[in-house]
């Protein structure tokens, strides 16, 4: 699968999106704002990469897009997690944690 070069780290944007959508269905702008707020601006996501990731995840069947109406009465495409996406989130989270642990062990002096 072709990965976007703007990915933060291999697979990490996927994980962030899936985790974000685990709370509730959101449109692309909402996801972008949410991640920025949650990470207090540490993770600045290029929007183009975000959308490419969303459409790829949708094609892969992890998320499902549906047009709806926002609180401001605007038409927007809302994404939500599919059961397959929920399973992928669980699996990827574990992998990510192991990865982080491994990196941590290398960086921390024993």
């Amino acid at each position: 699968m072709a990965r976007d070069p703007h990915d933060l780290l291999y697979g990490s944007l996927d994980l962030l999106i899936l985790r974000t959508l685990a709370w509730e269905a959101m449109h692309g702008y909402g996801i972008s704002s949410f991640i920025r707020q949650r990470t207090a601006g540490v993770l600045e996501i290029v929007d183009a990469a975000l959308y490419k990731c969303l459409h790829r995840l949708e094609r892969q069947g992890f998320i499902e897009g549906e047009w709806g109406i926002t609180d401001e009465n605007r038409r927007a495409k809302f994404y939500k997690l599919t059961p397959a996406g929920r399973a992928a989130l669980r699996a990827e989270t574990n992998v990510w944690k192991q990865y982080v642990d491994a990196v941590h062990k290398v960086l921390e002096p024993t």
């Binding site: 290029v46 183009a48 969303l54 459409h55 094609r59």
Partner: peptide
Amino acid sequence: QFGDINDARQFCRAEDER
């Protein structure tokens, strides 16, 4: 801030088609 919008549009359309 959005980045390369044309590239993203192309990519997203292709993904949707597929």
